[in-house]
Structure formats: C-alpha cells, structure tokens
C-alpha cells in the first residue's frame, strides 16, 4: 500500500499556503470594497453570491469539461429549500445554508445520473429542459412554492445567534463573503487532490481516462453533486439575503449568464470565475443604469472580444500580453 508524504517539507508548506490564496484574495478585496462602497453593500452582496454560483459552475465546466445550460436548477432548489425552511421550520441561517446545499446536491444527483450519460448538444438540451420542468413545477405547486408569486417574507435569525441582519446589509455582506472564502478554499483543495487531477484528465481525454481504468461516469456524477451543493448554497444565500424566492430562480437566462461570466473570466481556474462575475455584474449594473434596455449590447460585445482575442478568458490576459510583446 502507499503511504502519504509527511507534511514537513518546505515545498509542501508553500503549496498549502497556495491553497489559501484565492480565499485570502477574496477577503482582502471584500474588505477594500466594504470600505470604499459602504452604501452599495446589497449590490456587492449580489456579486459575491453570484461568484459562489459561478465558482460551482467552474468545477463542472472548467475542471471536468461538462458543459450544461441548466445550472440554475440546483441554485433554484437551494433557494426554495432555504426559503421553505426559514418560513416553516427554523430561521437559523446556517441551517438554511446546509439545507440549501443538500437540496442542490440531491437535485444534481438525480439529474446528473441521467444528464451525465449524454454529451454535447444532447447534454445541453436535456439540462435546459430539466430546468424548464422545474420552473413549471414550481409555478404549479402553489401550495408549496407560492406559484408565480413566489415565497415572500423570508426572515432569518441573527447569524450564530449574535449578529442581527441589518438594514444596510453589512452582516449579509460579511456572511456571504465568508461563505465564498470557505467555498473557494474547498474548491482549491479539491482541485489539487487526486480527484481534481482525475477531473482534469476527464476534461483532457475521457477515452484515455477509461483506458487507465477510471470510472469516468462515477467521477462526473460526484463532481456534479459537489457543484450542485455549492450552487444550492448560492441559492440559499440569495433567499436569505433578499427575503424572496420566485420562479425566476429557474430562468434559462440565469444558467446562460453563469456560462457567459465563466467564459469571460476564463474557465478552469477559480480566479477566472471571480473576475468574470465581477466584470459582468459591474458592466451590467453600469450599462443598465445608462440604458436599461440595451445593456446586453455591451455584454455581447465584450464576450465576442474575449472569445476572439482571449479564448482562455480575461485571466489569460497577462500571459497573452507577454506573448505579444515577445513576438514584436
């Protein structure tokens, strides 16, 4: 049998620090944003929650190469689960998050068992269809979900029994940032694990992975469930922070936006998900305040530019620039 390396070598110490790096960056950036934009905290919180959602999508698209257009399914299930728990069972926010994660994971598991047997266009179409079915179901099941009106008046108790969610949104922001930092740490650990390496192998060549004996389908289902749990957490946070859940959590446009944000930033590295989300949300916010009807124009233009000039996303800008400089 194999024995793990003892954790004393300097190289290992350095690499375990690098595991913390994305989380540390996010904490630093969030602290700065908190000080600079104290009156935009609700918008900042939306960005942070979206980052969690896009990071979860990076696990499946960026790491394992599974492209879907139905990631909102898990987000929506997490949102409804957290909303229902808060309304009917317990207002505890952490419990709500846990339930949201479970709801997202269960949804991912059930849908993944079918979805992940398919590829390409079929996979895209089935993932869209499943989310549509969920939206219709949420709209029909008025007794549970409030139908088209959604769940309203969701309130949560103070965080850890200590911090009351305030009107300005300070606690909500800090709460969301902490969850994001935790999620990033988990993802970073996962990426450097044997499981993470296997995912990158599947993304590189599924046929070769099978030829070295990897149960490819099982690994895909596992990462899909993990990503689903994280997406569920993002949905649960939204429900808790906004106090509302409506059937638009299952909107097709949400799944599509997530894909766009990830492609903009660059799939495969967590930073890409963070940068893409930040850019998308800020540009959307600014452009929509200038022209509320044609903001998509700006986003579309940006996406075309990135896809042609930086096919690996904004995250690859520094390497691309040095490449170009070296050539001239």
């Amino acid at each position: 049998m194999t024995t793990p390396v003892l954790s004393s070598s300097p190289r290992r110490a350095a690499t375990s620090l690098s595991v913390l790096l994305p989380s540390v960056c996010v904490l630093a950036g969030a602290a700065l944003a908190f000080l600079m934009f104290p009156y935009d905290l609700s918008f900042l919180t939306r960005i942070v929650i979206m980052m969690i959602f896009v990071v979860s999508f990076d696990l499946i698209l960026g790491q394992a190469g599974i492209a879907t257009l139905g990631h909102a399914a898990m987000y929506g299930c997490g949102a409804y689960a957290a909303g229902l728990i808060a309304l009917h069972l317990s207002p505890d926010p952490i419990l709500g998050l846990a339930i949201g994660a479970v709801a997202g994971a269960v949804m991912a598991w059930i849908s993944g068992l079918i979805l992940l047997r398919t590829h390409g266009i079929t996979l895209l179409m089935i993932s869209i269809a499943m989310t549509m079915v969920l939206q219709e179901a949420a709209s029909q099941a008025r007794w549970l979900t409030g139908g088209a009106d959604g769940l309203a008046g969701i309130t949560v108790s103070p965080l850890l029994g200590l911090f009351e969610f305030d009107f300005v949104g300070q606690v909500a922001f800090i709460y969301s940032v902490s969850v994001l930092a935790g999620v990033l740490l988990l993802c970073q650990i996962l990426i450097s694990s044997p499981f993470g390496l296997a995912l990158r192998g599947i993304e590189g060549s599924a046929s070769r992975m099978r030829a070295i004996g990897t149960p490819v389908y099982r690994r895909k289902v596992t990462v899909y469930v993990i990503a689903g749990a994280i997406a569920g957490i993002a949905g649960a946070l939204t429900a808790q922070v906004t106090g509302l859940v409506g059937i638009e959590v299952f909107n097709f446009s949400l799944s599509a936006d997530v894909m766009v944000m990830l492609i903009l930033g660059g799939a495969g590295r967590l930073y890409g998900a963070l940068i893409g989300t930040l850019l998308f949300m800020v540009v959307h916010h600014l452009a929509a305040s200038v022209d509320p009807f044609n903001w998509l124009f700006v986003i579309g233009f940006m996406l075309i530019l990135v896809v042609f000039v930086l096919p690996k996303g904004l995250i690859s800008l520094p390497t691309r620039v040095t490449q170009l400089l070296r050539r001239t």
Binding site: M1, T2, T3, P4, V5, R12, T15, I189, L190, S192, S193, P194, F195, G196, L197, A198, G201, M209, I212, G213, T214, R219, T222
Partner: peptide
C-alpha cells in the same frame, strides 16, 4: 500520476494532495 493514482485506488480522494504519496512520485 493519473494512471498510478488510479491503479492504487486513490482518485476518489478529495482532501489529500495529488502529489502527496511519496512512493507514487
């Protein structure tokens, strides 16, 4: 690393480093 991790039944590990087995390296 991938085929050896697979052969040794390690690719389901999530909380250990992929390069963390000295004899595999």
């Amino acid at each position: 690393r991938l085929p050896i991790l697979e052969r040794e039944g390690c690719t389901h590990h999530i909380f250990r480093r992929a390069d963390g087995w000295r004899d595999i390296e």
